[in-house]
Design a protein around this nucleic acid. Structure first.
Length: 133
DNA sequence: TTGTGTTTTACGACCTCC
DNA sequence: GGAGGTCGTAAAACACAA
């Protein structure tokens, strides 16, 4: 039984397609009907395909995890950069005119809103305050 | 022991290639 | 048209917890 399986596995690993010659040769060596050899090959191919799909699925899941982790990293970086920019602008603004010449650094920009394909609000103005919110 | 989930075997229906 | 492929599925065999 184990020897039969080993012979079939060896043959299958050599070639997953079963030629007529190989089928009859295996059937003769194993003392089985050629039909049974053919069916074993069919089922073995199906099993290999299922295993391959399972492996692919695992790999995709791992890749997705990496991408999500990268997103979190980038979100943190964006937050830090926004803070730095905010601080720099506060230092550059003359205290007396800031309220009238520049938009708020914290309030959302609603005067030139557009949206991208994700529905995010985008402002077209140069140095938009809405970018900082 | 038995109920249940998993794996293996076998088959029919349909498709492709020579 | 025949040989051999995939796909879906039923039945048998097997593993294992309760």
């Amino acid at each position: 039984m184990h020897d039969q399986l080993r012979l079939l596995e060896t043959s299958f690993n050599t070639n997953q397609k079963l030629t007529t010659e190989v089928k009859f040769e295996l059937a003769r060596e194993l003392g089985l009907p050629p039909r049974q050899v053919a069916i074993w090959y069919q089922n073995r191919r199906a099993r290999r395909k299922a295993n391959t799909m399972e492996d692919d699925h695992k790999k995709i899941q791992m890749d997705l995890g990496d991408v999500l982790a990268g997103n979190i990293r980038l979100d943190k970086e964006i937050g830090m950069l926004r803070n730095e920019l905010n601080t720099a602008q506060q230092l550059l603004l003359p205290a007396s005119s800031s309220a009238t010449t520049l938009p708020s650094l914290t309030a959302p920009c609603n005067d030139h809103p557009t949206s991208n394909t994700r529905g995010d609000i985008i402002c077209n103005r140069e140095m938009p305050a809405c970018f900082l919110q």
